[in-house]
Design a protein around this nucleic acid. Structure first.
Length: 288
DNA sequence: CTAATTCCTGAATC
DNA sequence: AGATTCAGGAATT
């Protein structure tokens, strides 16, 4: 089912920035097409100016996933309050915060603590190959395989050893616990009803999910656009451009809280967008 | 409340 | 080439 989405003039999108910025872990660009799996769908996307070619899903699904219904121009002008964020916005104009499936997002960010992006991608890939349903491929490129992200039910059978085999290391036990909790039928519906701070607390109740992972899941999985995750890059950027230095190597919980609240009060309801644009421009903003 | 230490993988450096 | 060092969050003490 080939589809083409015509982007309106007031619907800015930069697909490369959106899929390449590290918010989702299952996208690769090959031969001009972005290939990835969202939930149980294998998608391919290609942008050419205002045209977006789609394989593997209908327009409504892609519009929702890419959050094309959000008024990005209005969001960006609301956070565009100084020269630093302005430069970041210019550099990645059209980057959008995806709407990721919640369980997949939670497990992915559980795999993402204390590690780098390629390692996370490998872990997620291993989990899907071992426990995800294989997606049969009318829309897949020839000779390629795709696996759905497993449901909590499908992962119920996974042991700590299985997760270790997926190279989760000490996170394996955390993943086991998380699957159990997410397998409760009301879990997703209940957490979705909570406002940002409460949802964040509920996420931090999981073993292995601290402030940073909780804020990422709140932002990418629950759509709380006011969340402001603080990783080491954001910390460097904020210290350099907005706050007074701190010489320490590790970030204390108090320092995390200080930077998070500063980001929220400075950038407002769409602080999460500010965070993504700053992160995306990290090389620019941290070069001396 | 803060500081130090440990957990594990993977890449860079010695 | 094999050993050491380091980056990166969260939990525990």
């Amino acid at each position: 089912m080939p589809e083409t989405i015509q982007l309106e003039r007031d619907e800015p999108l930069d697909l490369d920035a959106t899929l390449g910025c590290g918010q989702a872990f299952r996208w690769r660009k090959r031969l001009g097409w972005w290939e990835g799996v969202v939930g149980a769908r294998a998608l391919r996307l290609r942008q050419d100016g205002h045209r977006l070619d789609v394989r593997g899903a209908d327009e409504a699904f892609v519009r929702h996933y890419l959050a094309l219904d959000q008024d990005l121009e209005a969001i960006l002008s609301s956070i565009d309050c100084d020269a630093v964020i302005h430069a970041a916005i210019e550099a990645s104009y059209g980057l959008r915060i995806l709407r990721q499936p919640l369980f997949e997002c939670l497990i992915s960010y559980l795999c993402a603590t204390n590690t780098n992006i390629p390692a996370v991608q490998r872990r997620v890939e291993e989990i899907t190959v071992r426990f995800g349903r294989r997606i049969s491929g009318d829309d897949l490129p020839a000779s390629s395989e795709a696996y759905a992200f497993p449901t909590p039910g499908a992962l119920r059978a996974a042991t700590g050893e299985d997760f270790r085999a997926c190279r989760l290391g000490y996170r394996a036990a955390y993943a086991e616990d998380a699957v159990m909790a997410c397998d409760e039928p009301c879990w997703e519906g209940c957490i979705r009803k909570l406002p940002y701070e409460d949802g964040r607390q509920a996420l931090m109740a999981f073993h292995g999910i601290g402030p940073k992972a909780a804020d990422c899941i709140a932002l990418f999985g629950l759509g709380h656009l006011e969340a402001f995750p603080v990783d080491l890059w954001i910390r460097r950027i904020m210290i350099r451009h907005y706050l007074d230095g701190s010489g320490r190597k590790t970030m204390t919980p108090a320092e995390y809280e200080e930077i998070r609240q500063f980001g929220r009060s400075r950038f407002g309801l769409y602080a999460g967008y500010a965070q993504e644009y700053l992160y995306s421009a990290r090389a620019l903003l941290c070069s001396e």
